[in-house]
Each structure stands twice: as structure tokens, then as C-alpha cells.
Write a protein that binds this DNA or RNA. Structure first.
Lengths: 156, 156
DNA sequence: TGGGTTCATTTGGGCGTCAATGGATTCAGT
DNA sequence: ACTGAATCCATTGACGCCCAAATGAACCCA
């Protein structure tokens, strides 16, 4: 029951390699392949083990093969995705597509999201982080006093 | 049925370690992992055993996966959180993110909150404590009119 | 009740292991 | 043979793990 948690930042070397945080590699469980897909909602890439693509395909399977949504989703999970190899030292090399979509240059912010994780250009991540925390605060206020933080489930 | 109670202050050593109060460790029940999340509402960190994340995820599970609130909450509980190891002597090491968010430097105030506890920079905690006591007083006066003693403040 | 004693938590530090990082070397495709 | 990629190696530094001293609190007994 391990998940991708926390966020850290690692440098990209001259050869374009980045270390995937050890904690994340542990969650991946010895897998030396990393499945990635460009995010639709922002300049980030979502990544995880092969089961990620399985989940995506499961969803695809529930759609009508002749619908537009099928067409779109199918492209999304296959065409805008990649299978990156994790080398012996736990590093990956990001392709041009990913760097372009995310704006990643010489640093990568790894962000845990539970069953997958994201890779961001640190600056863009900072902005996202700030906005999201603000939204969380609003959300909490909307939900009322009973909704804050962990304390939210005050029903003890 | 033990809870996190009272507040104490412990020093951070050169290597960045702090002892988690023994009473708190007892409540954690032998777990050597501490789940933490940055608070949205203040410069503090909320912590507890792994069941905390389960509770948070349970709540996540009730949300619409495509809603913004899901996105926000998911970030909050996964991206701004950490799983800290408690060493053999009951100490933890706070990461850079936590120190930055809380302002913690060489001292940590541990504050019991029932089913979880908080970690504060002592000075900030003092302020929070003062404000909160004041609010509690107002609250009590308001509630006093309608009736209950100490127990009276239970309901929402 | 005062004093001494024991036990437990806290705290400081040493040391080995693993992760992260930079660079060299081998390999493969063109 | 040349370019880019996949492997392999070596260095550095952080972190986990262990032991020991120091601090303090609970306890017992005279």
C-alpha cells in the first residue's frame, strides 16, 4: 500500500539524465520502465508503472469505439505517452516532446500524486503549488469549519 | 483509545533531528513511520500515523475524480505530504519543505490535537495559541447564552 | 518527608550504507 | 567510422542505525 508522496527536485545533467527519487523507484517496485503521458490539464507529465496504462486502457474499453471520445482518449493514452527506461542508476532521459510540453530544462520537480507522480519545471510547479494551496483553503472555507485539514474528519 | 494531548517543545540537533515526545510515540503505537502534511491554514505541519493518509484518501474517494476539488485535495494529501521515518531513538528529520513552510529552525513545538498532532516553530505557536485562546473565549461566551458548560461546545 | 536510587527518555556522536551525481567506456545503428 | 545511447565506475554526501553519556522523573525506603 505504498504511494507516491512528497515533492523533490533533481537536476538534469549534460546528457539529459535525471535521477528518479529513490522513494518513487521503490513504489514502482523494481520496474525498470516508466510509463508517462503528457497532462491535458497543465504543463506537466504524469508517470507511473505499467499499471497506469492498463488503467487508462480499461477506461478506453468502456467507451464506444466509434465515438469521438474514444478517438480522443485513445490518442491521448497512446500517442502522447512514452515508455521511458530507468537505467541501472535509477535515471531516465526525458524526450523532446516532454521537455517541450513541460518547459523542463535543467531541473525537474517530482511530485507525488498517490498512484502516479508528476514531473514539472520547478518554476511552473511553484505557481501550481501556490494556486492549489489557495484553492484548498477556499475549498475548506466553503465546506465549513468541519472541513479543515486532517481535522476535517472531526467525527473522531 | 489514546489521543495526542498537550504540547511540548524539543530541540533540533546539528544533524537536523528532533525527538518525537514519547507520549506521542506511544499513541502512534510502535509505528516507525510518521505521515505529515503541510497545513493549508497556517505555518504548521500536521502529523500522525499512516491511518491518517487512509482517512484522507477515503475522503478523496468520495469526490468526483474529474472535479477541481478532487485535484486540489489530491495534491494536498499527496504532494504536500511526507512519510518520515522514526529512528530507533524516536527521532525524525524534518525536510526542507517543512522547515520552510513552518519556519522551524532549532526548536519544534509539538501540539496534540486528538487524532493527530502539529509541529510548530515555537514563536509562531505562541501567537497562534494566544489568538486561539481569545477566540475560544469569545466562542464560549456566545455558546454560554444558549446553554452548555464545557460539553456545550460539542455540536456544530 | 527527605534522600538516595532506578528507570526511561532525551541528546550527542561515530560509522556504515545507499542514493545522487559526474564522467568514462562500450555498444548499436546508420 | 561516427553519433547517440545504454552501461559501468568512482566520488561525494546524506541518511539510517547503533551505542553511550546526560538529563529528569518516578519510586522506595529510612
Amino acid at each position: 500500500m505504498s504511494r507516491f508522496l512528497a515533492n523533490t527536485q533533481n537536476p538534469v545533467d549534460k546528457k539529459g539524465r535525471v535521477s528518479v527519487p529513490a522513494a518513487f523507484r521503490t513504489v514502482l517496485g523494481g520496474q525498470n520502465e516508466l510509463y508517462t503521458m503528457l497532462s491535458i490539464s497543465g504543463p506537466t507529465v504524469e508517470a507511473g508503472g505499467p499499471q497506469l496504462i492498463q488503467a487508462a486502457e480499461a477506461r478506453l474499453g468502456q467507451m464506444d469505439p466509434f465515438s469521438e471520445e474514444y478517438e480522443v482518449w485513445s490518442y491521448y493514452i497512446h500517442g502522447d505517452s512514452n515508455m521511458l527506461k530507468i537505467d541501472g542508476d535509477g535515471r531516465i532521459t526525458l524526450g523532446e516532446e516532454i521537455r517541450e510540453h513541460t518547459g523542463i530544462d535543467d531541473k525537474v520537480a517530482f511530485v507525488g500524486r498517490g498512484h502516479f507522480f508528476q514531473m514539472w519545471e520547478p518554476g511552473k510547479f511553484k505557481i501550481y503549488q501556490k494556486e492549489t494551496r489557495m484553492k484548498a483553503l477556499e475549498l475548506r472555507q466553503r465546506l465549513g469549519k468541519s472541513g479543515g485539514g486532517i481535522a476535517g474528519k472531526r467525527g473522531h
